[in-house]
């Protein structure tokens, strides 16, 4: 299979490794030389020459399918899918857990009220994902190749979000025991830990409001002043959408930190009409 070795920026040339068959085909159009085992430099024009893709790829895919079927079958022979006792609505298990791909959400239930953890945060996440192509101001760079240097902001922000999601899943799946208490891997998960005695505290209301005003103020205004170029390339609308989403995402680790270090239950706890809005 043709495979990228190296790219020279100036001339748009690429060096690829090709199979002999592919080389034969390119050679037919472009009589240039003998097939050299290994690498070949292609100019942009030559990159447009075609190889018989359908013929080669279907075979490879078939093989990949066979290999994966085999792996899954062996896995299934040796490991049984879980099945516990019959469902019993009267018996809530002490270690009640969601399936692993939703355990990140369940993990957030520890730090946020359910309407935030289960509804608002996932919705913002989805909206953010859908907006990705429209927020990214750069429409050309990096298409079709892995690059950090050319898109540092995009890659770091997305990488941060993706990593956080999976870290939450790993903690929820492997580091939580009965009653969603934190267990190190070497601790016995069948022993119920004692609930921590320390009382959790709330920020006073003014403090909470001040915290959010300051936080969003800093997140939205500071980068605008410090990274003027960044602000310019994004434009006003994109900038505010991006920074708000980013600020909201950062609030998750911030809240976790506040909870663990200062036993903060809610940063802001409002009572509006009959409803408690806790953040």
């Amino acid at each position: 299979m043709a495979e990228l070795k190296e790219e020279s920026k100036e001339k748009g040339e690429v060096i690829v490794r090709m199979s002999e068959r592919e080389w034969e085909y390119v050679k037919n159009i472009n009589v240039k030389g003998d097939y050299k085992e290994g690498f070949e430099t292609l100019t942009p024009k030559e990159q447009d020459y075609t190889v018989k893709h359908l013929r080669d790829s279907v075979g490879i895919e078939f093989l990949a399918g066979l290999i994966f079927t085999f792996i899954i079958m062996v896995w299934s022979l040796f490991m049984d899918a879980p099945l516990k006792e019959l469902a019993n609505p009267a018996d809530t298990p002490i270690d009640e857990r969601a399936p692993w791909y939703f355990i990140g959400l369940q993990e957030m239930l520890i730090f946020f009220d359910p309407w935030l953890a289960g509804v608002i945060i996932p919705s913002i996440l989805l909206v953010g994902l859908i907006l990705v192509p429209f927020i990214d101001p750069n429409k050309e760079t990096g298409i079709g190749r892995y690059t950090f240097r050319d898109r540092p902001v995009a890659v770091s922000v997305f990488g941060f979000g993706f990593a956080m999601w999976y870290i939450l899943i790993i903690i929820g799946q492997f580091f939580r025991g009965p009653a969603r208490m934190f267990y190190w891997p070497w601790e016995d998960k069948t022993v119920l830990k004692e609930m921590p005695v320390s009382e959790m505290v709330n920020f006073p209301i003014t403090g909470g409001i001040a915290f959010f005003v300051l936080y969003f103020g800093i997140c939205l205004v500071l980068p605008q002043i410090i990274f003027k170029n960044f602000y310019k390339t994004l434009g006003v609308v994109r900038y505010y959408i991006f920074m708000s989403l980013f600020a909201i995402m950062l609030l998750i680790p911030i809240k976790i930190f506040l909870r663990y270090v200062f036993d903060v239950k809610y940063i802001l706890s409002l009572q509006i009409f009959n409803t408690a809005l806790n953040f």
């Binding site: 359910p114 289960g118 509804v119």
Partner: peptide, 26 residues
């Protein structure tokens, strides 16, 4: 089974807590 029942109970209880549209939400 128990796994299924309680896993799904947790998951769907999120809907209960939706603002406005859930019975227990704000």
């Amino acid at each position: 089974d128990q796994l299924a029942y309680w896993g799904v109970t947790i998951g769907t209880s999120m809907g209960e807590n939706a603002p406005l549209l859930g019975a227990k939400g704000p």
